[in-house]
């Protein structure tokens, strides 16, 4: 199904482009929102990501749906990182500053699912921590790759990840997730 969609998109079929967009837009919006906290910026990143995907879909070779999603996700992440670099919104936080950062969660009445809570807390991380945490934990990049992407050293990437984990765990304990994290470990 997705293969036919990709083939039609490669021929420039607008209907197929819309269907592919509908299939992945919400998932990719969440990806974008994990990197750029602001919704307007996330929309901008998503839009430029989709445009780049439709322009370069001729070079994409379909193998399976997971491959297609990974390809689209990589495009959106690259766009997000480019956006962060362009806006100079990627300062790497020092240890002293971390203590002052407090999560600003939205009201919990509708947030019944753990996944939504985790997503929200990740968004609350400082940009430097959040970017390294997302790239390493969620996307599976290595510290070397992160260093190349963010133009930082591997050690800086490692330290940023460590600090991000510490901060996130602190917040999770505050919100009653300590038992949950220990249970999974």
């Amino acid at each position: 199904m997705s293969q036919q969609l990709v083939e039609q998109c490669q021929r420039g079929n607008a209907f197929a482009q819309k269907r592919l967009y509908d299939q992945y837009v919400n998932r990719l919006f969440r990806v974008s929102l994990r990197y750029v906290r602001n919704e307007a910026d996330a929309e901008e990143v998503l839009m430029s990501g989709f445009l780049k995907a439709f322009r370069s879909i001729q070079e994409f070779t379909y193998r399976d749906d997971a491959g297609l999603e990974a390809w689209l996700r990589r495009i959106v992440i690259n766009e997000a990182l480019q956006h962060l670099r362009a806006n100079r919104n990627l300062p790497l936080f020092q240890a002293e500053e971390v203590a002052q950062v407090q999560p600003d969660p939205k009201p919990l009445q509708d947030m019944t699912l753990d996944a939504e809570r985790i997503h929200q807390l990740i968004q609350e991380l400082p940009p430097g921590y959040r970017t390294v945490f997302n790239l390493y934990v969620v996307e599976g990049y290595t510290h070397r790759e992160i260093g190349e992407q963010l133009r930082i050293s591997e050690n800086t990437s490692k330290s940023q990840l460590s600090k991000a984990r510490t901060l996130l765990q602190t917040w999770l304990i505050q919100y009653g997730y300590e038992a949950e994290t220990r249970r999974s470990s």
Binding site: D114, A115, I118, Y136
Partner: peptide
């Protein structure tokens, strides 16, 4: 923690 976060996000 990483695994728990990944599993949680995959359920979104």
């Amino acid at each position: 923690l990483d695994q728990w976060v990944r599993q949680s996000l995959s359920r979104l």
